[in-house]
């Protein structure tokens, strides 16, 4: 059996994944990083994108979209602290596009600064998810 490492993906709104994985790909700020079990300790900032996990005894990969966050790697444990997270199966691209359009529309008629900031946060959230999905789609086409 291949070596595995304990992976936990959590966001403030709940735990997204907890279990063993053989290989992890995460979008670190300075580029994507691939992590095998026994990796040297590392701590990195993440940018929005998709985390891909190769699970033992399973074909294919588990995909989780994250916005920015922190990635911590210990030899036998990987912790991903996501500011916002979304499982692939919960994602709905059409819905996200709609969200983006709506937010951009309101942005044009913005009222106050606070309102503006709130909307900007929403936009970033929608965009990061969309970006994650597009990355994934692109990759799938290549295969």
């Amino acid at each position: 059996m291949a070596m595995t490492v304990q992976v936990d993906v959590v966001s403030i709104e709940g735990s997204l994944f907890s279990g063993l994985a053989e290989f992890i790909v995460a979008p670190a700020e300075l580029g994507e990083v691939g992590i095998y079990p026994g990796h040297a300790p590392m701590i990195a900032r993440m940018k929005p994108g998709a985390i891909r996990l190769k699970l033992p005894n399973q074909p294919g990969e588990e995909v989780i979209f994250v916005s920015s966050g922190i990635l911590e790697v210990q030899p036998r444990r990987v912790t991903i602290l996501s500011d916002l997270g979304l499982l692939e199966r919960d994602a709905d691209e059409h819905h996200l596009r709609e969200e983006k359009r709506k937010v951009e529309e309101t942005l044009r008629y913005r009222v106050t600064d606070i309102e503006f900031m709130r909307i900007q946060v929403e936009l970033t959230r929608a965009l990061s998810r969309l970006e994650g999905m597009q990355v994934l789609r692109h990759r799938n086409r290549k295969i």
């Binding site: 670190a28 300075l30 300790p41 590392m42 701590i43 990195a44 900032r45």
Partner: peptide, 8 residues
């Protein structure tokens, strides 16, 4: 003694 690889 050990230390992380920090990024950035």
């Amino acid at each position: 003694y050990w230390d992380y690889i920090y990024e950035p």
